[in-house]
């Protein structure tokens, strides 16, 4: 599904060269629920940009759904994002003056889907996140958790190859965050490939596998111990993922 081979991203500030990503290689298989963690400055945002086709790597090869993402123009990248990736952001990023229905339907508008088919698919996506009765609401009239659900519906509506979530629980209280994570696990159980970027180890533990970045390099790439299943998370909080070395990779 996702394959990064020796990916590097280099920024130049003055004469200084900063390798935000330094020869990173990794894979995410179809149906996986992967988290990418790391402290700020570790390169996880850059990683997200490259995986999300918001930016291209300076070195290395990135294969998304079998397609090599390089030398694409900005417009071609926009099309790839539209077709293959469903974005979920920390601050929900819904457009305030549009209704939820319009927000969720927007990717389909850019894809050129007809209004009737759009309505049908938006309805299905909203149903999936439990907001079917909130179609005509605007983002400001609903809670943060509901906004994030709407954002998830917007990501689902295009039936993307991968859902890419950037700190999806960062702006939510822990209880709401849990329910969003549960939704992700349910989606994963239904076969969705999900890549979740977070700095929160507790969140990362709830995913199938955690890739830990530090200073632009992959520090560890192991299983956190929990595959997505419906119901409560297996309580392996004891030693798992609390610290740099991933010592619980053998659980699964």
């Amino acid at each position: 599904m996702i394959e990064l081979n020796d990916i590097s991203k280099i920024y130049r500030i003055g004469d200084e060269e900063i390798r935000a990503l330094d020869s990173v290689s990794m894979r995410v298989k179809e149906g996986e629920f992967v988290s990418i963690t790391g402290s700020s400055g570790s390169g996880k945002s850059t990683m997200m940009h490259i995986i999300g086709c918001l930016d291209t790597a300076d070195e290395g090869v990135y294969l998304l759904d079998g397609q090599s993402i390089e030398h694409y123009s900005e417009n071609e990248l926009a099309m790839i994002r539209n077709q293959k990736i469903g974005f979920i952001f920390q601050s929900f990023n819904l457009i305030a003056r549009l209704t939820l229905e319009e927000n969720v339907g927007l990717p389909l508008v850019y894809r050129g889907v007809s209004a009737s088919l759009r309505r049908e698919r938006v309805g299905a996506a909203m149903e999936q996140v439990g907001l079917a009765n909130r179609m005509k609401h605007t983002p400001n009239s609903i809670s943060g958790g509901q906004q994030q659900r709407a954002a998830i519906a917007r990501a689902l509506v295009t039936e993307p190859a991968m859902i890419l979530a950037d700190e999806p629980t960062g702006n939510l209280d822990s209880k709401t965050g849990e329910s969003i994570m549960k939704l992700f696990r349910n989606l994963n159980a239904a076969g969705k490939t999900i890549v979740l970027i977070t700095h929160d180890d507790h969140i990362a533990q709830q995913t199938g596998r955690t890739i830990r970045l530090m200073d632009g390099r992959i520090e560890s790439m192991g299983r956190t111990g929990v595959a997505a299943v419906n119901g409560p998370i297996a309580a392996d909080t004891g030693g798992g993922g609390t610290d740099g070395v991933n010592n619980d990779s053998a659980v699964f």
Partner: peptide, 14 residues
């Protein structure tokens, strides 16, 4: 920001 959102979900320059 809105422009960023629109671009992220697939709006091209045109």
């Amino acid at each position: 920001r809105e422009i960023g959102i629109r671009k992220a979900i697939g709006a091209n320059k045109r």
